[in-house]
Design a protein around this nucleic acid. Structure first.
Lengths: 160, 160
DNA sequence: TAGCAGTGATTCGAATTCGTAGCAAGCGGC
DNA sequence: GCCGCTTGCTACGAATTCGAATCACTGCTA
């Protein structure tokens, strides 16, 4: 990690404003998820990724990388979600080491249940402060940043 | 929380891209802070806010709101930082209920020690992907969002 | 095809995070 | 000046989070 010149105040501000905005938004949606689910933020991310995404079942490590979480932490959460009947875990037929997590109908139903209130919070806290042009610009910038960051080895790739 | 229409895919993408970008960036800087401090993300935020900001001593609740953290969680972290000699805690002379946290010289030294490597990570993961125009646009948008979100009652204001 | 490094997941223990309850001090109305 | 309510912080218990160690299975290579 070769240190170069210090960051300018404007650069530091980009960084801090990003982290601060995300923290405030996350706290706001967590309140809603707890009240309407209850679901934690990570539980919502896991469930929503399965229920709303392309693939209704995914492997543990893929989920952990998607939500930027430790694999052991995801094991814990997967058990919690399974105990609540929101997902199932089964051995991957293609690779006996792997575990495939799949949403259940109850899991889908819970996502549908919390989603309207969730979207309302996102609208109120985030989207209502962006007009169409700003929203588009912000989304493009963030998408590009996310895609670049995803180029790096995922969290699960740490040495052992 | 009156639900209105569902969000468009583009709107959902704004939301998820923001949260995902922040998560990836946070994970990256946490690795550096752990290696060079060691400091956790919240510890760094607390210390850096005191060492680099305007006010080198702040009240517990103000710090908790600034870093979007629970007050009891901040009590724990303040004790940890105090035990390591990085901050001091003392009664607020103006309000005997209050506790004022102040960085020590050792705390400042530690921030100075981790900062170059920290900035290098921020540069590599975030800033290197933004040219001047994009960085400026992103910063302006995020600053405005953050300021709007800060208009809402802070986390410490929850009912008891 | 036996050996073995690599990968997927879980277990375990330690550290942390949070909400609630409780304590102490301020503040307003009377 | 006193009571009742609020506010600032900490104590406590329960839940969660993480990394390291471990177990099981894959697939490469000699």
């Amino acid at each position: 990690m070769a240190p170069r010149d210090p960051l300018s105040p404007a650069q530091l501000e980009t960084y801090f404003a990003l982290m601060e905005t995300a923290s405030l938004l996350q706290y706001a949606v967590e309140q809603q998820l707890k009240a309407d689910g209850p679901l934690s933020w990570v539980q919502f991310q896991v469930l929503a990724g399965l229920a709303l995404g392309e693939r209704p079942s995914q492997r543990m490590t893929d989920i952990a990388d998607r939500v930027v979480y430790s694999r052991s932490g995801l094991t814990y959460q997967a058990r919690v979600l399974e105990d609540r009947g929101l997902v199932t875990r089964s051995a991957d037929p293609d690779d006996e080491r792997g575990t495939v997590v799949a949403v259940t109908p109850a899991g889908r139903a819970l996502v549908e249940q919390v989603l309207p209130g969730h979207e309302a919070v996102v609208r109120r806290v985030l989207l209502d402060h962006l007009d169409a042009a700003d929203g588009g610009a912000l989304t493009r910038l963030l998408q590009r940043l996310r895609d670049r960051m995803r180029q790096a080895p995922p969290r699960s790739a740490r040495r052992r």
